[in-house]
Design a binder for these strands. Structure first.
Length: 282
DNA sequence: GCCCAGGTATAAA
DNA sequence: TTTATACATGGG
């Protein structure tokens, strides 16, 4: 991946595909919002940016080379060749070809571990628009002012609160889960940093000591927050997809990029609900 | 009003 | 160990 710094910001020249809409709206993140001109604005690691796609370039407005090296190169997984990944997946597991080939340019974002954990705790038994609303109110209420928005509040900012203090979020029964997670992470009982490299089963087990974190949230945290691309979250949509369009497909059959395949399967099944509903009558 | 949402805790079988 | 139900809230 190459990029150059211009008056507008960082202009990225990619060999592989990067579709902003599919990447930001595929259900992996909840804090990027689309602007009228088709650009997206978000806040990562306390830095706000707007991103727009023009011709064969992705432009991160206002970013300098230090931002690129410290934040965006990692966050957008720019040095991973997604065309090669998708080719590998299609060869390894032909059943997923339709999903991997018909959806363009989803990249798995390397979100902050705590933000991913917290976001997917909120996601349980919830719908995406409402998840976005709760996360937004969490940042507004407890994060730091950052550009035109707010940064994601660190666990330390929540650890001393009580669930009732989060009533303004309207997160319902998840409020106490958020507080428990904040306490365990800020207190070191759950060490997210080590999970970049620790054995997956050890990470799963440790994450699930948090009240409100089950197999699904643990897997999402590992995939989206720790960028463990072999993680394989299974939610209601994935269950439907695996039971119909992709029967026989599993994390094992997808190998080291199971998480990327999963995102394509997930988005594909949501974009084609009627395809999935066929045979779901039972 | 009704059904359901990127699930999990809890109790019961 | 597996299965059933409640859970807070609000989008569609």
């Amino acid at each position: 991946m190459k990029y150059e710094i211009t008056a507008r910001g960082a202009e990225i020249i990619l060999e592989d595909a990067f579709d902003l809409k599919n990447t930001f709206d595929c259900g992996q993140c909840f804090r990027w919002t689309e602007n009228a001109d088709g650009s997206y604005t978000g806040i990562v690691r306390g830095r706000q940016a707007s991103v727009i796609s023009e011709n064969d370039k992705i432009i991160i407005e206002g970013a300098d080379s230090s931002d690129m090296e410290n934040i965006w190169k990692v966050y957008f997984d720019l040095d991973n060749d997604y065309n090669a990944v998708r080719k590998e997946l299609a060869e390894l597991c032909p059943e997923v070809c339709c999903a991997v080939e018909s959806i363009d340019g989803i990249r798995i974002l390397a979100q902050e571990p705590w933000e991913a954990l917290c976001s997917f705790i909120i996601s349980q038994n919830n719908n995406i628009p409402r998840i976005r609303g709760i996360v937004h109110r969490l940042c507004e209420g407890f994060g730091e002012k950052c550009g035109s928005g707010y940064s994601f509040p660190p666990p330390e900012a929540l650890a001393d609160l009580e669930p009732e203090d989060l009533s303004g979020l309207r997160a319902g029964f998840r409020a106490r889960y958020i507080i428990d997670a904040a306490r365990k992470v800020s207190g070191g009982e759950v060490n997210l940093e080590k999970m970049y490299s620790a054995p997956m089963d050890e990470c799963r087990k440790e994450l699930m000591t948090i009240t409100g974190v089950g197999a699904k949230v643990a897997e999402c945290t590992l995939l989206y927050g720790l960028h463990r691309l072999e993680a394989f979250p299974i939610d209601v949509w994935m269950k439907k997809a695996l039971a119909t369009l992709f029967s026989g497909v599993s994390a094992d059959s997808l190998g080291r990029y199971a998480g990327i395949a999963q995102q394509y399967i997930f988005h594909y099944s949501r974009l084609n609900p009627k395809l999935v509903e066929v045979n779901m009558k039972e």
